[in-house]
């Protein structure tokens, strides 16, 4: 005896397309669709009195695979998202989420205390704190009288010499316990 079944034998979400329901359509709501074709991750930058904040939406990223570095005024965020890598492509009914490696770099304003950067990662949202450096005090330049033998210089005079190139700095990410 032959059985006939139309369509897919196992299609529990076959009617997924009917997602937005009448009750939602009836409401006066601005429903925004999936934000397509944008860089992953999307970032926002905010300014506060004492610091800048950079936020990035990186859901599903393992904090252990997240790499934040600062080098010569360039903040680089690197990570990977592979939470469904074991699933063969033919098993997917929908594939809308980003996967794979990602990297983004942001130039920092020069008034940042690079040594004080810190970051938090909660519920897939990364927040990087970029504390502002104090504006340098106007520097008084001492005029040395040629007659005097002792040559004195301001304590900060060395800075005009070639500064040491800072090595890339790694930022530790604090994470809320789950």
């Amino acid at each position: 005896m032959a059985f006939f079944r139309w369509g897919h034998p196992w299609s529990p979400l076959g009617d997924l397309e009917r997602e937005v329901d009448r009750f939602l359509r009836g409401m006066n709501l601005s429903i925004h669709g999936i934000r397509p074709g944008r860089q992953f991750p999307a970032i926002n930058i905010y300014e506060l009195e004492e610091e800048f904040l950079l936020t990035a939406e990186i859901p599903g990223t393992d904090p252990g695979e997240l790499d934040l570095t600062v080098d010569a005024g360039l903040l680089t965020l690197k990570g990977v998202r592979n939470d469904v890598k074991e699933i063969p492509d033919e098993k997917f009914r929908r594939q809308e989420r980003f996967r794979g490696n990602w990297q983004r770099s942001v130039s920092l304003p020069d008034r940042i205390l690079e040594s004080e950067l810190h970051a938090e990662f909660n519920d897939g949202v990364l927040v990087i704190h970029l504390p502002k450096a104090q504006q340098p005090e106007p520097r008084r330049i001492r005029i040395v009288d040629q007659q005097q033998k002792a040559i004195s210089a301001s304590s900060n005079a060395d800075e005009t010499m070639a500064p040491e190139k800072p090595s890339p700095r790694k930022i530790e990410v604090d994470q809320e316990e789950h």
């Binding site: 979400l13 859901p59 599903g60 469904v84 098993k91 009914r93 929908r94 989420r97 519920d123 949202v125």
Partner: peptide
């Protein structure tokens, strides 16, 4: 955005809900 895939036992749905 969501992913939906089939498994032996049924289906699994992932949705990105940052925050």
């Amino acid at each position: 955005p969501i992913d939906i895939y089939e498994t032996e036992e049924g289906m699994v749905l992932h949705a990105d809900l940052p925050g």
